[in-house]
């Protein structure tokens, strides 16, 4: 046995739990009280903070998803209208071409 081990023994001395521990545990054991879980307030705060963060992140993600979906619908509508109007222009041109071709045929038959 050396001094270092003595120091170790001193460092490892037994400690008592918080006051009333035995009474609480005995009450829990006989069903008079429910077992206490994770009584550390730091842990409780961490859990609450984690839950709040999770809710916030989920909320932000849901908002972004909703915003993105709305923007997607708007873009689709804009592209659909653009497409329709370009088709309209194309149809108008076809009509004009038809008229011009008709006039040219008439001119040839006259000649």
């Amino acid at each position: 046995m050396n001094e270092f081990e003595d120091q170790l023994r001193e460092a490892m001395h037994r400690r008592e739990p918080g006051p009333g521990f035995a009474g609480r545990v005995a009450a829990m054991a006989t069903g008079a009280r429910k077992p206490v879980r994770r009584s550390n307030p730091v842990w409780r705060w961490a859990m609450a903070a984690a839950a709040a963060c999770l809710m916030m992140v989920t909320g932000v993600q849901e908002y972004r998803r909703h915003q993105g979906e709305q923007a997607r619908r708007q873009l689709l509508l804009a592209l659909q209208i653009t497409s329709e109007k370009l088709s309209l222009v194309d149809r108008q041109l076809e009509k004009v071409e038809g008229i011009v071709q008709g006039i040219m045929v008439d001119e040839r038959t006259k000649q």
Binding site: Q67, A71, R72, L75, L77, A78, I81
Partner: peptide, 18 residues
């Protein structure tokens, strides 16, 4: 009535979703 104005971040979001 239709009024669509998409530019910048909102347009990026829309194109990403589309």
């Amino acid at each position: 009535s239709v009024n669509v104005n998409l530019e910048g971040t909102l347009l990026e979001l829309a194109t990403r979703f589309l």
